[in-house]
């Protein structure tokens, strides 16, 4: 019997453990410790609802546990978990978007818009930041919202974001350019 891992080993969270190893060891705890905050944050800002974000985070890790057999060993844990989380969030959105989300703002308007980069994005106090972001993201389409949240995770490359959202890295770059403009506009307007 292999010894029980007594200390967090975050190298496991990057992917070298096979599913069978994870099931029988403490490594799943390391995976949770390493990635739960990113998953919760994505769900919180994507859905704009703390209670649903808690549900999603719980469900994502439970699904991961149940479906370790489908985990592709060559994929990083973070992208696998993000994929589960995105699918789950989309299902949640699909079931209640009509009541709770402002969806599909007109994206074309940002194509030729001038980038409002003459002044920085500013908040007076950190305690207002969350509300400003929630309000700003409410004005963005689900796609822009998701792209910005993913690119804010500096551990993800454009290629990985493209893989997660079903498009090329170049398409991600182009859409991010417009998404940044939209975010900047609405963030400044929310001051």
């Amino acid at each position: 019997m292999s010894p029980v891992v007594s200390e967090p080993d975050t190298t496991h969270a990057q992917g070298p453990l096979a599913p069978a190893e994870v099931l029988g060891s403490e490594a799943f705890g390391a995976v949770y410790q390493e990635h739960s905050q990113a998953i919760y944050y994505l769900a919180l800002r994507y859905l704009g609802d703390p209670e649903r974000a808690q549900d999603v985070t719980h469900d994502v890790f439970l699904k991961a546990w149940r479906h370790l057999g489908s985990y592709r060993h060559e994929a990083a844990w973070k992208t696998w978990l993000y994929r589960i989380a995105i699918n789950h969030c989309r299902n949640v959105v699909g079931s209640w978007s009509a009541r709770n989300l402002v969806s599909n703002a007109d994206e074309a308007v940002w194509e030729g818009a001038e980038a409002p980069t003459d002044s920085p994005l500013r908040v007076l106090e950190i305690k207002e930041l969350g509300e400003r972001i929630r309000s700003t993201l409410d004005h963005l389409s689900e796609e822009y919202r998701l792209l910005l949240l993913l690119v804010a995770d500096e551990r993800l490359s454009y290629e990985e974001i493209g893989e997660l959202t079903g498009q090329s890295a170049d398409a991600v770059r182009g859409k991010l350019h417009r998404a940044r403009k939209a975010f900047t506009h609405h963030f400044k307007a929310s001051a």
Binding site: P120, V123, V151
Partner: peptide, 12 residues
């Protein structure tokens, strides 16, 4: 005041 150059910095 807190100032950020990009949306990504705000979100981080």
């Amino acid at each position: 005041p807190l100032e950020f150059d990009t949306p990504e910095q705000v979100l981080r």
